[in-house]
Write a protein that binds this DNA or RNA. Sequence first.
DNA 1: GCTAGTATGGACTGGCAAGTCCAGTCTGGA
DNA 2: TCCAGACTGGACTTGCCAGTCCATACTAGC
Lengths: 207, 207
Amino acid sequence: MRALTRKGAATRQRILEGAATHIREHGVADMTLDDVLARTATSKSQLFHYFPDGREELLLAVARFEADRVLEDQRPQLGDLTSWPAWQSWRDKVVDRYRRQGRLCPLNSVTSQLGSRTPGAQAVVIELMHRWQAEIATGVRHMQGTGEIDPGLDPDRAAAALLAGIQGGVLIQMSTGQIDHLEAALDMGIAHLRASKSRARPPTTPS
Amino acid sequence: MRALTRKGAATRQRILEGAATHIREHGVADMTLDDVLARTATSKSQLFHYFPDGREELLLAVARFEADRVLEDQRPQLGDLTSWPAWQSWRDKVVDRYRRQGRLCPLNSVTSQLGSRTPGAQAVVIELMHRWQAEIATGVRHMQGTGEIDPGLDPDRAAAALLAGIQGGVLIQMSTGQIDHLEAALDMGIAHLRASKSRARPPTTPS
DNA sequence: GCTAGTATGGACTGGCAAGTCCAGTCTGGA
DNA sequence: TCCAGACTGGACTTGCCAGTCCATACTAGC
């Protein structure tokens, strides 16, 4: 896998994205290597040339690819949770992203196929969750800095709860088609953060 | 499929539970019909006798089986959310259930395999979520009745948010092994419900 | 204890899809 | 220009596994 020609790199990328697209559209369960080949106009030998471990390696690459997208799709809002309108705008972006995505979650799909067998797949998800939560927590800390959130609140725990709400909301949307749960979870999470302040400094400063 | 002998019913049940167990232990992806046969000391013809549509029908039956368990495992607490200690006790039960369950979620696993192809699988999940949410909402309403929760809160939306938190917490636990998110989500959700009251009827009534 | 229908064993088929192989082409650097 | 190594095509092997089939054994009601 050393020394990729420009052409080679392009082919590899084509295969990767073709697989990702196919999975987005049909799920991982019925993705066959031949499907990918047909879609990307490549051949078996190419696929195994760029992904020597075959299907498993390809799937792992897709997982990484999709994991990166998840956070990118939330930018720039996710990295800039510095005011309530910013939080709201982020919330809207998340809802919108998953509304668009429809019923198939490539990442969930791929990791649940690779399963616990592959430590690699676990690692991808773990890191994604970690980064995601960290960015939310940073936002919480910032708001604590400006006095908009009760400083007594644990930012990591709050971020964890919010993240769980998002994941669950998305999961429910995948399986039932309803986006309400995602919205409700985000709204409740943010409302809770906002409310913390009024509880921390209750009577005389209702903003 | 009419006229099941007692013996026949037992065999059918054995196959069903054997499949469920195997899926719990190894995931659905590497569950082969022969695995189930070996584990349950049955033969191909029996399996197809009781599940004429083969693998797919069996998987669907497993999904139903597991869906029922989910709510049952939360009883009696889930049906009796009538005081804060009761909520707390329910919260503990949920956390405990999923902590025990480990890294494989049979239901998520099965439905993501059956995918969107089978409308049946969707239906099972949809109904589960619906019932689950309804039971939580009932608890919220009850607490509103006794004045422990702000009556201005939408019970269904609150229940939706809480449910999303649970689902996400479980999902994260499946993929990362951490139970913190589930705990955080439940705690935050319940805290939010409790706090609503103090906001609704605060000291000096600023609303 | 007859018999119709139920239950069971397990060999066999068929197809699909992952992965291998080799022969042939292209590319870039010296 | 030359050649080592990258790139490509696609036939072939291999193994697995869902689903079929038929012969046999059991059971329940009459």
